[in-house]
Design a protein around this nucleic acid. Structure first.
Length: 292
DNA sequence: GCTGTAACCTGTCGGC
DNA sequence: TGCCGACAGGTTACAG
């Protein structure tokens, strides 16, 4: 499922239910997801207050009052649904555990909650179990094996034309594969790489090291634009992504190439049709007329 | 070091 | 209707 815009949408949805509140009870319903959960995860979560909720790449980071950070990755099919007390606008009808609800956090109610004694219920659901959860000392977070090698945030100051040109120089791998490499830029996935390359007019097959500075500059702008628009739309819902209140994102209606094989290219003046090709086992959607 | 592929696991969809 | 294969938004490990 989730690329950067979907994860950011989930993080924003979790804030009213979690930030500043204690975890009263943690239901850990299996031993792990992609990897085993950390030892005594239930005990380490219960009683901890969530001081802040951040996002790094596709990871949600919950800084706890205990000095540890809860690291959550939603994998391909993960979702987080909030139900319970309706304060802050998070209402979802589900109040009992569903299939694939692997971890459920029962949160402390806020003072203004209209149902005293009933805080939010936060359920981490992941059918394919490619997601992960871990606990790690907040002060050493940059050393965590999943976070240590991540490249810059695409919406941050460190990611610019100079950085990208430097990382692509000399590479013969297709630009599509290079942009999926989280060490080069952190947070992009298959959908938004396809969309950004189309906006920049660059073929997904072009060798990464053979793109001019001028086109790299356009690509940086295209990546930022498509991510910002997707966040504003609440992400893209194809199969699994849901906001924390169960609603769908709607950026999929604005796709220019992804999933549009055989349809007309949306670039003004272009008469091409969208093609699908497989690169590294994954679908790339592009227009051969206006992407070179 | 770089590159491509297999593997992880489950649900959905299309074809027969 | 039921079965089967292909495919799906991510990431790591491994072989070449």
């Amino acid at each position: 499922m989730p690329e950067l815009p979907e994860v950011e949408t989930v993080r924003r949805g979790l804030e009213p239910a979690m930030t500043g509140r204690r975890i009263l009870r943690a239901e850990v319903r299996r031993d792990g997801l992609r990897w085993p959960f950390p030892a005594r995860m239930k005990e380490r979560l219960e009683g901890a207050r969530i001081e802040s909720l951040r996002r790094r790449s596709k990871y949600i980071l919950g800084d706890l009052s205990t000095g540890e950070t809860l690291i959550v990755h939603l994998g391909m099919s993960g979702r987080v649904l909030v139900s319970g007390a309706p304060a802050g606008g998070f209402v979802h009808a589900r109040a009992v555990a569903q299939k694939h609800d692997h971890v459920i956090l029962h949160m402390e109610p806020a003072p203004g909650d209209p149902q005293p004694g009933h805080g939010g219920r936060v359920a981490f659901n992941d059918a394919r179990r490619f997601g992960t959860m871990d606990l790690w000392p907040t002060a050493q977070l940059e050393n965590h094996r999943l976070l240590a090698r991540l490249g810059p945030e695409p919406l941050g100051n460190r990611f610019d034309e100079n950085w990208l040109a430097g990382r692509l120089a000399g590479r013969r791998t297709p630009i599509k594969a290079a942009l999926l490499d989280q060490r080069i830029v952190a947070g992009l996935g298959n959908i938004y790489v396809c969309e950004a390359l189309h906006r920049a007019g660059i073929s997904p097959r072009r060798a990464a090291g053979r793109i001019s500075r001028r086109r790299i500059s356009h690509l940086v702008g295209a990546i930022r634009a498509v991510l910002r628009e997707a966040i504003d739309a609440g992400g893209s819902s194809l199969r699994d992504h849901r906001r924390t209140n169960g609603e769908l994102g709607y950026f999929q209606h604005q796709f220019r190439v992804y999933g549009r094989e055989g349809e007309a290219c949306k670039t003004p003046g272009c008469k091409g049709r969208i093609r699908r090709l497989v690169q590294s086992g994954r679908s790339s959607f592009h227009c051969a007329q206006c992407q070179r």
